[in-house]
Design a protein around this nucleic acid. Sequence first.
DNA 1: GTCTATAAATGGATAGAC
DNA 2: GTCTATCCATTTATAGAC
Lengths: 194, 194
Amino acid sequence: MAKRPVSASPRRRRDAAATREAILAAATRRFAVQGYERAGVREIAADAGVTAALVNRYFGSKEGLFAEVIERALDMGNLLEGRRGDLADHLARLMVYGREDSPERVYTPLLLLLRSAAEPGAVKLFRRDLNRTELPLLAEQIGGDAAAVRAVMVMAQLTGFAIMYHVLRPKAFADARGEELVALLSRTLAACIG
Amino acid sequence: MAKRPVSASPRRRRDAAATREAILAAATRRFAVQGYERAGVREIAADAGVTAALVNRYFGSKEGLFAEVIERALDMGNLLEGRRGDLADHLARLMVYGREDSPERVYTPLLLLLRSAAEPGAVKLFRRDLNRTELPLLAEQIGGDAAAVRAVMVMAQLTGFAIMYHVLRPKAFADARGEELVALLSRTLAACIG
DNA sequence: GTCTATAAATGGATAGAC
DNA sequence: GTCTATCCATTTATAGAC
């Protein structure tokens, strides 16, 4: 009952770290669905329950915010984590159903990539991450001859599938059953891996 | 020697149709590499040798111009034209080398799609075109069971490959020989078609 | 048919109060 | 730590001259 006299407002507590996280989360969502240019700093701030001034205070600029969003998205994009069983089947299920715990964790990076393909800075970041992290990991799993190129082919397939499934969604895909897509994707992946 | 007294300036003749074409061509290039938002009407106009006022005069607005660019790009994107021989091999060569007569005709639509993926209007136009034109044509070539879904899978692969090859270009792809890529892509396409 | 000049709006960034 | 108010650059779109 005894209310603290100072700074215990019933609304939201002042917490720099929490605010930073809120802004980052809101920005990730906006950038992923609207792309860099169309997502406004004002909107993002509003989503996070603050004003635009704070965004610039914490991240310096819109570009700074964007860079941090991309880095974080790339971090969470480990495609191999939690795998059990066949690689092609694992990847196919991941693309169609997402990860069990947090489905959006899989395709958010892909959407971010897709919708930021016009930002030169973003493309550089993605390329660097591919070369350093994702592709070597994938290549190691694939093994054998020309594993490096095959790994890129696999990434290409996953990216293309994500575009069709999550963005363009033509009729034939919207009507298809999940298992049908898994089977099809898994088979083409296998052809490229094996 | 006899110079016409009126309107025969040594510079450029006044020709509405030619000007329209020039603007359209410039806009296609700009939109394909910079995306809708980053491409400015002033730049486009300058590329075409005119001023921004004319662009709006001919196309009403930047959006109107964009719509016409997309429609035209989709028109020229017929992947099957000029095919001889195996479908998978034909498509693979098309993606790696472009078309013999005009290489950029193949991937310009894809780049346009990629760099405009954040424009809702553009996505709708692409989806409509896919459903009406490209996918049925492809499905017809594929034939057999579930041709419709397979056609989407093929489009997904082509799109993904284009992104890796023309935009992200990770090291393994930049280093690879053309024929190696053709072989790899052709093989995965075949797995999905057959 | 094309340009110049300008209107009008948008959106990122900053200063300073609380 | 957060907000209000404002500045400033950019960019689309238009009116009117030539």
